[in-house]
């Protein structure tokens, strides 16, 4: 495997609250190599989007990112606003979940795509506009010249997401961060977008960090998968290994609760309870309250991520055994 493009160490994202910071991302480590796809799954509020925004330097104030993000041999945390701007949309680009609200409603989509090249490649609007049309075509939009002049509301959800992707890839970034890019779309359109992303990855060779709450989606496209729970990575493994042999009780539960198309059961297994409030006592394993295996040890200390098989990490005292 080639040297990592992205190396995240001890990343934390905190929001101020009475008496300190509330860490919605509480120390995570991972790495991503060029041309590879990393899937990030987890339930609502577990910190997936905040992790992604930290990579872009866009954690909403008053939130703060700490720790280390090394990208292309450079440390991103603590770099200047101008350095961030030079990187964003250029070397690291992002696709957001809601293609309706993520595009500027009063600007034609062609101009929104062209803007990226105007900003980073210092092209004129005319030339960048021509490129935008070509890019719309490359992401599979028919009559791209007319569509370039259209406003977002004149496009369907699928086309808007294609336009978002065209925008993100305008400068052929080394890393594409896709935050639930297909969640708002129908399955047939989702399949089209996934195909498109893989095809463009082949062409441009970028690394993708693909965020989703849908295990099945991630399983189809990711080489490696991270499972997040309450601000932590509870398991990280190559995709095949994760599904064949999930080691963390939460991952096991998640996979088990999904209805299996091959065999219908009377009752689905459930993970009891709900996602904990991040404010509640920070000691011990965050999953302990919902875990069938939890014992006093689990509640006393936070389990560290252990490599239980090559490339397979789990943060659970019982997984190592």
């Amino acid at each position: 495997m080639s040297a990592p493009l992205l190396e995240v160490r001890g990343l934390r994202v905190g929001f101020p609250r009475a008496g300190g910071l509330r860490h919605v991302v509480a120390g995570i480590d991972y790495a991503l190599s060029p041309g590879r796809t990393l899937g990030v799954v987890g339930e609502s509020g577990c910190g997936k989007s905040m992790t992604a925004l930290a990579l872009m330097g866009l954690v909403p104030p008053p939130g703060r990112a700490e720790g280390s993000i090394r990208f292309d041999g450079r440390e991103l945390i603590g770099q200047s606003a101008a350095e961030w701007r030079a990187l964003r949309g250029n070397r690291i680009a992002m696709v957001f979940q809601e293609p309706m609200t993520a595009l500027n409603p009063v600007m034609p989509v062609g101009a929104q795509i062209a803007e990226v090249q105007v900003l980073h490649k210092h092209l004129g609007w005319k030339e960048a506009g021509e490129n935008a049309v070509a890019m719309l075509e490359a992401v599979g939009i028919n009559s791209p010249r007319e569509r370039a002049r259209a406003y977002p509301h004149q496009l369907s959800g699928g086309m808007r997401q294609r336009a978002m992707i065209a925008m993100a890839l305008a400068c052929e970034p080394a890393l594409l961060v896709a935050d639930e890019p297909t969640t708002a779309l129908d399955v047939t359109i989702q399949a089209q977008i996934l195909d498109l992303m893989l095809e463009l990855q082949d062409r441009i060779g970028m690394a993708i960090q693909f965020i989703s709450h849908n295990l099945a989606v991630v399983s189809e496209i990711a080489h490696e998968i991270i499972v997040m729970y309450a601000g932590r990575i509870v398991e990280r493994a190559p995709a095949d290994a994760l599904f064949a042999n999930p080691r963390h009780p939460y991952t096991q539960g998640l996979i088990a609760t999904l209805p299996d198309p091959e065999q219908r059961v009377a009752r689905l297994p459930v993970i009891p309870g709900g996602v904990p409030d991040l404010d509640a006592g920070a000691r011990g394993c965050r999953f302990a309250d919902r875990c069938a295996l939890a014992d006093a040890g689990c509640r006393a200390a936070e389990p560290p991520a252990e490599e239980i098989a090559p490339g397979h990490f789990a943060a659970c005292f019982k997984a190592a055994a």
Binding site: W84, R85, A93, L119
Partner: peptide, 8 residues
């Protein structure tokens, strides 16, 4: 946020 993400 998208505009910022473009590097504007």
């Amino acid at each position: 946020r998208t505009a910022r993400a473009k590097g504007a």
